[in-house]
Computed example of a mutant assay.
Amino acid sequence: MNPEQLLLKAKTHLTMKHPYFGMLASRLRHEPGEGVSGYASNGVRFLYNPAYIEKRTIEEVMFILTNCVMHHVLSHQQRRLNRRGSLWQLATDYAINNLLHQNGLVIPQGANFNTEFKGMYAEEIYDLLKEQYGLSLSEDAFGRDDQRSPDTMAMGDVPEEEGGEPFSANDGTIDEGLDPQSESQWQYAASVAKEVAQRKGSMPTGMDRLGKRAIASGVDWRFELYNAINRHMRNNYAFMPPNKKHIYRGIALPSLASDTLSLCVAIDTSGSINDELLGLFMEEFKSIMNNFPAVKIELITADAKVHNHYTFQGGERLDFSLKGGGGTDFRPVFDYIDANLPMTTMLLYFTDGEGRFPRIPPAYEVLWALSGPAKTPFGRALALFA
């Protein structure tokens, strides 16, 4: 079977066994590519080395195609931001390949696969890999102390996987970036594929909260948020706990401790909240913990009622469920804080702003992280999107 026939057969098998993945894989226009050592995809074209593909089994080609399209569906290139390119590629592969394994696809030998990362976002995996490989952890929302550009970091900086040649989603010989129109087309194609798969009862598992992360608007809402946090911080340096950004270097530097800030974060899990906002929340919540390791954060998830309350502090692994899907009423969160967290000094509420507000503003500061234009009767509104 020649490479062309193998690719067509793999797409057919995917469509039959995994309609969601098959419909998306069929969008890729495959063609032989000069200088391509294995395969590469930019979301429009799938270039391949015929000698490489013809050595693959049908299951391996199905995996290759699915891995490629999921990078585009999950907007991994757009979500990279200022992260190291090769390490981000590894993290996204781990996230995708665990999802594919969960849905019955064969993971080839040599692919980036580790069950320890099952169910984790690529952003979470990336942070764990940084610690694992001893890379710099001194990052924040405003810059990085590593002066090298992510593009200048060679794959040799990260240990290669054992067990054979890697199955990366892109070997660097084709432009990775998607233009806005192509990205929009992928999101539309994914929504159509989801609808078809749901009608057939074959929607992949593990996709519910694995959507793309949103990118903040031109308004630097992170700067506003961190300024607000800093206003409550006391410049009291203490060695307990030490600054976690430098622990990997064997250096115990003092951290900025605070006995004046009690931060509460609420996330609106109502039916009107999409995965973009949830993803952005996850990313920024981790940034807050990493940049303010001495701050204890109370996390509340709610729609028209409070579903869960968790307590986190910098450096802890995020492990919580997002329950909801109902209507939106902000009052239960404020009532819950009054009853259970009376020392709260600031509330950050991630929401679309569509719901019932308390009649009387609370005594503590309130920041509304809004996914769209909305009027808030009190507090400061921060726009997440342009």
Results as ranks from 00 to 15, higher is better:
Phe63Cys: 03
Ser184Asp: 14
Asp208His: 05
Glu195Tyr: 11
Asp352Met: 03
Asp220Glu: 10
Glu354Asp: 11
Gln187Lys: 13
Ala374Asn: 06
Ser168Pro: 00
Asp259Met: 11
Lys296Ala: 15
Gly33Leu: 03
Asp93Trp: 02
Leu87Glu: 06
Asp259His: 13
Glu354Gln: 09
Ala122Gln: 10
Thr12Asn: 06
Val61Tyr: 02
Lys323Trp: 06
Trp221Lys: 06
Thr328Tyr: 01
Lys9His: 09
Asp151Ile: 10
Asn235Met: 10
Tyr188Met: 08
Ala40Ile: 10
Thr311Tyr: 07
Gly353Leu: 07
Ser75Thr: 00
Phe239Ala: 06
Gln198Pro: 03
Pro204Asp: 01
Met23Ala: 05
Gly211Ile: 00
Leu367Tyr: 13
Lys296Glu: 15
Asp179Asn: 15
Gly355His: 09
Phe334Tyr: 15
Pro332Cys: 07
Asn236Gly: 02
Ser272Met: 02
Thr66Pro: 02
Asp157Thr: 15
Gly177Phe: 14
Thr205Ser: 10
Asp329Ala: 10
Ser217Val: 11
Gly324Glu: 01
Thr311Arg: 12
Leu367Trp: 13
Glu139Ala: 08
Tyr336Leu: 05
Ser255Ala: 07
Gly119Glu: 09
Ala339Lys: 14
Asn308Val: 00
Thr376Ser: 08
Ala10Asp: 02
Met346Ser: 05
Ile273Glu: 14
Ala214Asn: 07
Ala386Pro: 14
Phe223Lys: 13
Ile229Trp: 08
Asn103Phe: 10
Ser86Val: 15
Leu210His: 04
Asp171Ser: 03
His30Lys: 04
Lys212Phe: 11
Asp93Pro: 03
Asn2Tyr: 04
Glu162Ala: 13
